[in-house]
């Protein structure tokens, strides 16, 4: 089977609707297909990656720990839009530290999150074969 560039765009906050959770489920299943996978976090989608999420009071499942498993699924390109963070008063420090292990570099841990500008994000999206938007 040919390898295509799959991009999953995450635009919604983690709670309030099920889009973020079910997007993550597609990413995890899709990882088994050995495609070239990227994720983009735009707009309120940046909230999906924030650390210290606690859903005790709202009766929703806190699925944010699942993002830390993405590296093990070989999902290692998470593009976060800089302007979206700034517009919400967030910085990279507010996000979980997500890493993947590079087997070609003695299993060194490398950052999965790439902060990109809105203009750079446009280029990243332009480079994809398949875009799934959530």
């Amino acid at each position: 089977m040919s390898v295509k560039k799959f991009m999953y765009i995450n635009r919604k906050p983690p709670y309030g609707t099920v889009y973020a959770l079910e997007a993550l489920e597609v990413v995890l299943i899709g990882a088994a297909f050995d495609q070239d996978v990227s994720l983009a976090f735009i707009g309120d989608g940046v909230y999906e990656l924030t650390k210290g999420q606690n859903t005790d009071a709202i009766g929703q499942k806190n699925f944010s720990p699942t993002y830390t498993a993405l590296g093990d699924y070989d999902v290692k390109k998470l593009y976060v839009e800089k302007e979206s963070l700034e517009e919400r008063g967030l910085t990279l420090d507010d996000l979980q530290h997500l890493v993947w292990e590079d087997e070609d570099d003695d299993w060194a841990e490398k950052d999965s999150i790439h902060l990109v500008s809105r203009a750079e994000m446009a280029d990243v999206l332009d480079d994809q074969d398949i875009i799934l938007s959530f």
Binding site: Y19, I29, A32, L132
Partner: peptide, 21 residues
């Protein structure tokens, strides 16, 4: 069927067109 059917559709098709959300 499973979500794999969606991924396979993306691989096999020239275009995947998404409606809604």
């Amino acid at each position: 069927s499973g979500l794999g059917q969606l991924i396979e559709a993306g691989i096999q098709s020239d275009r995947l067109v998404v409606f809604g959300a």
